[in-house]
């Protein structure tokens, strides 16, 4: 049976390779899904991407892009920017994949690139952005899924926006996106203790920013 399965895999690999060769410039999802069913490990995928296999690249992309996009959107609050930064992340990742040594999880490495791409770009964005307009646009996208007071919620969102970048990234990753301290520490390249300290500072700053609203909204 094992021999038979191996033969099927070989035939499938040849077929998929011929499909890829017939149209090397575009990899569609069905091809990737079919291929993915016979893939076994991420290191194998990485090796194939490094060798120029675009089906494998698409497979890696499909596995990681949703969370990369999600993180980019949380950090930017702008769908167009999140899309662009996600693309930049993967273009850079594929270009540098040969240098990925596997010291950390691929997801950690990708999120590190994402945070770097976003941080670098957002420094420029912040200098020129019409924040009032953008904040109004963002607030219109919010849905009242929780019972929080709209005024308090809006103040909290603004306070998160205005946090220094290192605190903001930390609190978004931990409290908003649910990363662990260990994961954040690896992504940001700091010690876990530093990460905890930053989170504590971020929370303290948020509470201070909401202090004047606290008495009337504390019940």
């Amino acid at each position: 049976m094992r021999h038979g399965a191996a033969s099927v895999k070989t035939i499938l690999d040849r077929t998929l390779s011929s499909i890829a060769a017939s149209n090397p410039h575009h990899v569609t999802r069905p091809v990737v899904a079919l291929h993915a069913a016979y893939r076994v490990s991420e290191p194998d995928l990485i090796a194939r991407v490094v060798a120029g296999d675009r089906i494998a690249a698409r497979e890696l992309y499909d596995a990681h892009a949703p969370r990369v996009f999600r993180l980019a959107f949380r950090l930017t609050g702008d769908a167009a920017l999140a899309r662009e930064f996600t693309q930049d992340t993967f273009v850079r990742a594929f270009a540098q994949l040969a240098r990925f040594r596997g010291d950390s999880a691929l997801s950690t490495w990708l999120h590190r690139i994402t945070v770097t791409v976003v941080a670098n770009a957002m420094r420029k964005v912040k200098r020129f952005r019409d924040r009032e307009t953008d904040l109004e646009d963002v607030s219109l996208e919010h849905h009242d899924t929780a019972a929080a007071d709209p005024v308090l919620r809006d103040r909290l969102h603004r306070a998160i926006d205005e946090l220094p970048a290192i605190y903001r990234t930390t609190i978004i990753m931990h409290d908003i996106e649910g990363y662990t301290h260990t994961e954040i520490a690896e992504v940001l390249g700091v010690a876990a203790g530093t990460c905890k300290s930053r989170l504590s500072q971020a929370r303290a700053q948020l509470r201070a920013a909401l202090a004047d609203l606290a008495p009337e909204h504390d019940t």
Binding site: R54, A65, L156
Partner: peptide
Amino acid sequence: LMRDAAQTYHRPPSAPLDEMWMEIEQRW
């Protein structure tokens, strides 16, 4: 409040995977 923020702060839309991939392929 922070739990509420997790649901409402920069709430991500669905990732436009195919559109982004087309751009990545183009750059490739």
